[in-house]
């Protein structure tokens, strides 16, 4: 395995770059991070109609989120890959297709996280802000969202590790992210295919496991802070 790394390490890390577009593990990380960064505003925006007091708006938003969450990501990828060009007449390279899909898909999940984060705050917070004379929007911006975002932090960290794993589906449409790159290498090294697969699994483990541990630690911290804030001292 060390031998494979010595010979092909660079290829696994960045693909054929600079002769081809950036690929390999670097593309995986870039897709995941930019996917999360772009999905956050999408999720926040989608959370607005989800919390609307106007029923039809709320119902429509719920329906869209339910639709996105109930269809396999792989099928979403194929929709965007094959149908977006047919509908808007422009076709994107596989990596961009993957990014668009990841943003929409994770935006729907994050919107649910946002709503849960807001609903988890005690009603007294809103009431206290309103009683001080804050407006609804100001209350949301200065009082509720800062607290909700802090509570959401552990979920967002796990969301990043989900995104890293989800980028692997890029292989289905030929995006040269990590899985595709490793698979190509395995094809070229028939005798050592198992070692290449093992390296691939190890690479994902090295990326996701630390995130898992960080998420867990944050969950404990946030949980403790929450407990202190909401429980009366006895």
């Amino acid at each position: 395995m060390i031998e494979i790394l010595q010979t092909y390490g660079m290829q696994l890390l960045i693909g054929g770059f600079p002769h081809t577009p950036l690929g390999g593990l670097a593309l995986t990380v870039i897709l995941a991070v930019s996917g999360l960064v772009l999905a956050m505003p999408v999720g926040l925006l989608m959370a607005v109609p989800l919390r609307s007091r106007f029923r039809p708006v709320k119902a429509l938003a719920e329906l869209i989120v339910f639709y996105i969450r109930s269809v396999p990501l792989l099928l979403h990828v194929l929709w965007v890959y094959f149908l977006m060009p047919a509908i808007i007449g422009v076709s994107f390279p596989p990596a961009i297709t993957m990014l668009i899909t990841l943003v929409l898909f994770n935006g729907a999940y994050i919107s649910k996280i946002v709503v849960a984060g807001i609903d988890a705050l005690p009603r007294g917070q809103t009431e206290a802000a309103l009683s001080l004379g804050f407006g609804r929007v100001q209350t949301m911006r200065h009082i509720i969202l800062p607290q909700a975002l802090r509570n959401m932090l552990p979920s967002l960290v796990s969301q990043l590790s989900l995104l890293i794993k989800e980028t692997a589906l890029g292989a289905a449409i030929g995006a040269t992210e990590a899985t595709q790159t490793f698979l190509d290498l395995a094809d070229n090294l028939p005798g050592q295919a198992i070692q290449v697969y093992a390296l691939l699994a190890l690479a994902y483990f090295a990326l996701c496991y630390p995130l898992l541990l960080i998420g867990r630690r944050l969950e404990r911290c946030v949980g403790k802070a929450q407990k202190i804030a909401t429980e009366p001292a006895s």
């Binding site: 794993k165 692997a168 698979l183 295919a193 198992i194 697969y197 699994a201 483990f205």
Partner: peptide, 23 residues
């Protein structure tokens, strides 16, 4: 358990299909 969860399902599938039978 954490290790299994850290690796994409696609990679699990690839391993069990292309890799494991050889062992």
């Amino acid at each position: 358990v954490d290790a299994i969860r850290s690796v994409p399902l696609l990679v699990h599938v690839i391993f069990w299909y292309f890799g494991a039978p050889e062992l």
